[in-house]
Design a protein around this nucleic acid. Structure first.
Lengths: 207, 207
DNA sequence: CAATAGACTAAACACATGTTCAGCGCATGG
DNA sequence: CCATGCGCTGAACATGTGTTTAGTCTATTG
């Protein structure tokens, strides 16, 4: 699938996704997208109506690709998924990160899908005896998604704290062990923190 | 401290921080900052040289405020800190989030500071018998910072999955219990996942 | 009191950028 | 073979925006 074989519309879309992901929507201008796709700026508008129209199409496309890939892979484990094909996911994850920050409709749809899936995975894990039950399944699912997304979209400054230029397979592998230690044994040696939190919450819900 | 009592320079800086945090650097224009500060656009340039110069000053200012507040509070617990004064931290956390995403120098400095502190807290926790030892202290510190930052800068779409409009004290309190359950008991009931990960890493480092 | 400096402004300028316009080349269908 | 439509383009247009300029006002200083 050489880029030259794609239709101009598809090349524009792909170039836009790449650039939006790398530089953000505002910073990328139509002429840069056109140049990357090997067409004129006017053609971009001709096919998509406006820069915003192009964004909407890209949003939907990335959402579709991400969810369908996740469904196909079946694991519904974001991090493992990424490790299987780091380069293929890279720009799409970046893109989704930006969409999340800007709160686009596609981001909402993506989150709903993936939180639901995380909740199902946990429920299955509990049923199989592999995971502990939670006092708030929904919140746990959100927490798990949050951790996974945060890891995949880790800012370069944080990756540098691990001696890498930016997030990548090396960073993920290094983080995997402490993460799994946390998910296996926890970090605190007793439950004082947990008990104070639950107590505070109960007090709050009574008043 | 009414805004009218501040010097024009300070009012401009404060307005810029607010707007950069809310709308991002690119989307915010100099005239909007000037209007919010009650001055002319030309004065913004007069005092800060350029929009980029203003950004640099804001970066440094927010960095300084955040680290000094963290130092003063002493807990070095980002999440508890936030709960003590949600509104006061709100825009500064948003600002730092944007700075991290755009990889500004101030963000690097902030991360170094806070990761170091997280590592120290863990070490103290281990010494006091309150926390488990880790096989990779540095990576654990990064993970903890990542989780805290991700929570504080949670995208609205994810907050909506918990029935709230956006991140706030209510969301944080709801997440606190599952988070502390995770940090106290872990989630997995056995160590198969952990053992496969460590085995894979060792194999990798041998080859 | 005159003069100098600095805070501050309105208006103009320069340029980047989204979009429109008029037209070209080429394929398809009558 | 003409005509219609479509993919496509270069140039022009309109506007938003960072910055400059020239000048006003006010306070301080000699």
């Amino acid at each position: 699938m050489r880029t030259a074989d794609l239709t101009a519309t598809a090349r524009i879309r792909n170039a836009a996704i790449e650039l939006f992901a790398r530089d953000g929507f505002q910073k990328t201008n139509v002429r840069a997208i056109a140049a990357a796709a090997g067409v004129s700026a006017a053609l971009v508008i001709h096919h998509f109506g406006s820069k915003d129209g192009l964004r909407a199409v890209c949003d939907e496309f990335v959402l579709e690709v991400l969810t369908s890939r996740a469904r196909a892979a079946g694991t519904s484990d974001l991090l493992g998924e990424y490790l299987a094909d780091p380069d293929g996911y890279r720009s799409q994850i970046q893109y989704m990160n930006r969409a999340l920050a800007e709160d686009s409709p596609a981001a909402q749809s993506f989150v709903e899908h993936i939180v639901g899936e995380a909740e199902a995975v946990h429920q299955a894990g509990v049923a199989a005896g592999a995971m502990r039950e939670s006092s708030d399944r929904r919140a746990l699912a959100v927490l798990n998604v949050l951790v996974s997304l945060a890891t995949l979209t880790m800012p370069p400054a944080l990756a540098r704290a691990l001696g890498q230029d930016e997030f990548g397979p090396a960073v993920l592998r290094r983080l995997a062990v402490p993460t799994l230690e946390l998910y296996t044994y926890g970090l605190y040696t007793d439950d004082t923190a947990l008990r104070t939190a639950t107590a505070a919450n109960e007090e709050l819900s009574q008043s």
